[in-house]
């Protein structure tokens, strides 16, 4: 049985996939489905509670929360997907090359990765964004930086095993270049592990992006971000608690959905559980 089929049989994974896909759909379809313009202010309808007109209420500028949540999902997903993609590529290459080359080089590179890994990731992200300036690209860079080291470790471990396998030796005997062996023969064998790890780290990336936005280091207003919306709601918590609750729940749901998917995928690809 394939890993995907196994993962699909797990109800938690299915639930996680449904949650995640609903949020992705809301983000992608936001321009068509959102009832209002997420940045349009309406002084006449400020801080309104949930109603038939505004399903999730309005904020202190009279902007529709539901619409802002849908557009905010775009930022969350874009930043975390971009960051994890960068981390997989950069961390994956570092880990693969380090493990493949081995020896002293490997020792030094992995020592550096351990140092990067031991940094408190939120502080690291916070300072990098603060220094580079808060915008989408810099958020991607900052969050990617916090995730490179784990992916380097994930990529290195199986590379150490694979490079001793006879098919790699056969590649050398056939005159293949190191680049070819690394990317054509070793990479395909570690890709699934990297992607499973990627789904788990997506959850962390969403949380980090939200945390940075909450601190005030997110994509600049008026662009809606979930963390920024929570922050705005928090400032009006006495008058309109739903302002903080709804974006908070949105973040929680997306992180939870991604964690559920990642957990299921990891269990399904765990060699200890596999019988092939």
């Amino acid at each position: 049985m394939g890993a995907l089929a196994r993962a699909r049989q797990n109800p938690t994974t299915t639930a996680g996939a449904v949650i995640t896909l609903l949020i992705v759909a809301a983000a992608v379809l936001a321009p068509f489905l959102a009832p209002y313009d997420p940045t349009e202010q309406d002084i006449m309808s400020r801080l309104q509670g949930p109603s038939a007109e505004f399903w999730l209420g309005t904020d202190q500028f009279g902007r529709d929360i539901l619409s802002r949540l849908m557009f905010g999902a775009q930022i969350s997903l874009t930043v975390s997907l971009g960051a994890i993609a960068c981390a997989i590529v950069i961390g994956g290459v570092i880990g693969m090359v380090s493990g493949y080359v081995g020896g002293r080089f490997d020792l030094i590179v992995m020592q550096m990765m351990d140092v990067l890994l031991s940094f408190p990731s939120l502080i690291l992200g916070l300072i990098v964004v603060a220094l580079l300036g808060p915008d989408l690209i810099n958020l991607v860079i900052a969050i990617a930086l916090t995730a490179i080291a784990p992916f380097a470790r994930i990529a290195r471990a199986p590379t150490l095993v694979l490079k001793e396998r006879a098919f790699v030796e056969a590649g050398h005997a056939l005159g293949y270049s190191h680049t070819r062996i690394l990317f054509r023969h070793i990479l395909p064998n570690i890709l699934s592990e990297l992607l499973v790890m990627g789904s788990l780290w997506m959850a962390t990336a969403v949380r980090t992006e939200a945390s940075l936005s909450f601190i005030g280091l997110g994509v600049k207003p008026p662009t809606p971000t979930w963390g920024g919306m929570t922050r705005d709601g928090f400032e009006n918590i006495l008058d309109a608690p739903w302002l903080a609750i709804f974006p908070g729940v949105a973040i929680l749901l997306l992180v939870l959905g991604l964690n559920m998917v990642g957990d299921g995928l990891r269990d399904a690809t765990d060699p200890k559980l596999r019988h092939e």
Partner: peptide, 25 residues
């Protein structure tokens, strides 16, 4: 397992705000 999965999915500022709303406000 479910509770711990939910717990570790909570951004701490969200759980903080929820606790604050419930037990302080």
């Amino acid at each position: 397992r479910l509770l711990s999965l939910i717990g570790l999915s909570f951004p701490v500022f969200v759980s903080g705000i929820f606790l604050l709303l419930a037990f302080a406000l």
